[in-house]
Simulated scan of single mutants.
Amino acid sequence: MSFIFLKVLELGYNRHKKNKAAKKAQKEAELYYGQPPYPNGQPQPYPMSEYPTGLGPGTDTRFPAPPQPPQSKREKLAYMLISIVRFFQFVLGLTVIGLYGRDVRHDHKYDDTWNSKWVYALITGCLATLTAMIHLVIPFLMRKSASASARGAGITSKPAIQLPQFVWEFVLCILWLTLFGLFGKMYIGVYPEKKDEKDSKESGLGDSGRIDRMRHAVWIDLINLLLWVSTSSWILLKWLKARRAQAGSVVVDAEKGDENSI
């Protein structure tokens, strides 16, 4: 008899526990959806009150995508500053191509051997200019998409996308640092010796003209280095922030799963 009594008691306790959970789910559904849930206690994912009236065959019942949260003033200001930096990266990259390309074109015109340092400067300038142009063009393309808001001057919020971007910009920083070191060692503190006006600048590509031009190019290389260090650091911070947010969401989902299992 005691065994049967214990079984009946256990059955009543389990029944009470299920009814209590069903009532709790019903209250949560009424607060969230404004109407009772399904008979099995599960909330309605698409309440009938939100369906349009006069449904018929062929009617599109797809729900619109939830609106994107508006950007804060701080985010808008940060993305505006990054866009300005990208623009200067693009302009100064073209400037470097013009400064070093003048000598390469001169060597090509007179069938002289191309200097590897000047060719390296051209490659670095082309890679940087192309990268800056991509970051300037992508936001305008993303604005035409309904699911994108052109945040971060073409930089998405996914850590899987931001990490390769940071690696590439870090490579560009190394290239600019090497370029500044090469030509800084050659031209910083060096001034042309002008004997007279006739020998000073005969063709614009003589010793005097090249030294003046390369002395200016060295400081433009330094400015490019600082700009690319700033954008790569910004991408690194965005990647770390996205990783932290992603890890926090995973922990919250795991805690919810543990609560549901209990």
Score class of each variant (00 low, 15 high):
residue 22 A to M: 12
residue 139 P to W: 03
residue 113 T to P: 08
residue 73 K to Y: 05
residue 139 P to A: 06
residue 246 Q to N: 13
residue 123 I to G: 08
residue 100 Y to T: 06
residue 124 T to L: 04
residue 5 F to C: 03
residue 141 L to I: 07
residue 139 P to Y: 01
residue 230 S to A: 13
residue 100 Y to N: 07
residue 61 T to R: 01
residue 129 T to Q: 01
residue 51 Y to F: 14
residue 240 L to I: 01
residue 135 H to T: 08
residue 100 Y to S: 03
residue 124 T to W: 05
residue 23 K to W: 13
residue 79 Y to A: 15
residue 254 A to Q: 04
residue 18 K to Y: 11
residue 194 K to E: 12
residue 202 E to P: 10
residue 68 Q to I: 10
residue 14 N to A: 11
residue 8 V to E: 12
residue 94 L to V: 08
residue 3 F to A: 05
residue 253 D to N: 05
residue 209 G to L: 00
residue 145 S to I: 00
residue 162 Q to D: 04
residue 254 A to G: 10
residue 53 T to K: 02
residue 38 Y to Q: 08
residue 94 L to H: 11
residue 51 Y to N: 01
residue 115 N to H: 09
residue 35 Q to E: 13
residue 243 R to Y: 11
residue 187 Y to G: 08
residue 238 K to R: 15
residue 204 G to D: 09
residue 33 Y to V: 12
residue 195 K to L: 11
residue 68 Q to S: 15
residue 172 L to H: 01
residue 181 G to T: 03
residue 186 M to R: 11
residue 63 F to E: 03
residue 86 R to T: 09
residue 197 E to Q: 04
residue 67 P to Y: 05
residue 60 D to Y: 02
residue 40 N to W: 13
residue 173 C to R: 00
residue 167 V to I: 10
residue 42 Q to S: 13
residue 207 D to L: 13
residue 56 G to A: 13
residue 164 P to A: 09
residue 89 Q to V: 07
residue 112 D to L: 15
residue 110 Y to T: 11
residue 103 D to P: 00
residue 171 V to S: 05
residue 139 P to M: 02
residue 66 P to Y: 03
residue 51 Y to H: 08
residue 123 I to T: 06
residue 109 K to A: 14
residue 211 I to W: 03
residue 165 Q to F: 11
residue 149 S to D: 12
residue 198 K to T: 12
residue 2 S to V: 07
residue 188 I to W: 07
residue 232 S to R: 02
residue 140 F to C: 05
residue 77 L to S: 15
residue 16 H to Y: 15
residue 163 L to E: 10
residue 177 L to W: 05
residue 31 L to F: 05
residue 162 Q to T: 03
residue 125 G to Q: 05
residue 109 K to F: 15
residue 124 T to I: 08
residue 219 W to K: 01
residue 135 H to N: 14
residue 141 L to W: 14
residue 10 E to Y: 06
residue 122 L to N: 02
residue 224 N to K: 00
residue 250 V to M: 08
residue 256 K to F: 10
residue 20 K to V: 07
residue 32 Y to M: 14
residue 189 G to W: 06
residue 130 L to Q: 08
residue 51 Y to G: 09
residue 6 L to N: 12
residue 127 L to H: 04
residue 193 E to W: 09
residue 22 A to R: 06
residue 150 A to W: 03
residue 47 P to E: 08
residue 113 T to F: 12
residue 128 A to C: 06
residue 93 G to L: 00
residue 208 S to F: 01
residue 207 D to W: 13
residue 73 K to M: 09
residue 215 R to P: 00
residue 136 L to E: 04
residue 24 K to L: 12
residue 158 K to M: 09
residue 110 Y to A: 02
residue 96 V to M: 11
residue 73 K to I: 04
residue 39 P to L: 14
residue 51 Y to L: 15
residue 225 L to S: 14
residue 36 P to K: 07
residue 40 N to Q: 00
residue 203 S to V: 06
residue 146 A to H: 05
residue 168 W to V: 04
residue 72 S to V: 00
residue 120 Y to I: 01
residue 110 Y to Q: 06
residue 103 D to L: 07
residue 195 K to D: 12
residue 139 P to S: 05
residue 76 K to Y: 03
residue 81 L to Y: 01
residue 230 S to N: 02
residue 18 K to S: 10
residue 175 L to Y: 01
residue 62 R to L: 10
